[in-house]
Amino acid sequence: SHLVLVEPGEIFASPDLDLQDGDLRILTTLCELINRELLVTIGWAKHVPGFSVLSLVDQMALLQSAWMEILVLGIVYRSLPMNDELAVAENFLLGREQCRSSGLLNLHSVLLQLVRKYRKTKVDKEEFVTLKAMALANSDSSSIENMESVLHLQDRLHEALQDYEREQHSEDPHRSGKLLMTLPLLRQTANEAVRTFCQIRLEGRIPMHKLFLEMLDAK
């Protein structure tokens, strides 16, 4: 319930309309959006119970490893009611053809795979926000100083998920396991997204804000 309370509000893209080239406009809008989402995500992380008590170094390590998984989960959750479109933002839907022409086709297909998986599971908002916090706590960063406190955070979140499932989804005793078993595909999808944006950065055609570049460096 606390995580639902601190869940950030809707986010809107701000396309640069005098960019003539449709593909450049998509990628530029996407990169600007991701930079704003990163600011929101860092602010959100501070409200995840148990995160702010970690050392600053460990907070950075978890965010540097998990940020793309957190962003991907947001896009996937927003896209659940869509029909093969990605709701990157409330006012920014990406269909297959737009992704193909802007070089994002592979990312589109792996993201839709994850959308389908969560749609089949009928993941609800409480589960989505808990999984997002778990992605943060379970980011397998190699530069954690105090592993005990990170494991403790993971255990608290796992407990919250189990309590929730026991109360709200008693019909399926394996539901928390089903949700945890989506995390590997989430990790794989996020890695594909990081690869895609590293490539976009290498091509150097799209302006990218410093925070976005810094977080890409960290991956």
Binding site: I42, G43, L56, M60, Q64, L211, M215, D217, A218
Partner: peptide, 15 residues
Amino acid sequence: QEKHRILHKLLQNGN
């Protein structure tokens, strides 16, 4: 630390 200046600053200052 130096390389990740912005993240460090964002986490350090309050809300």
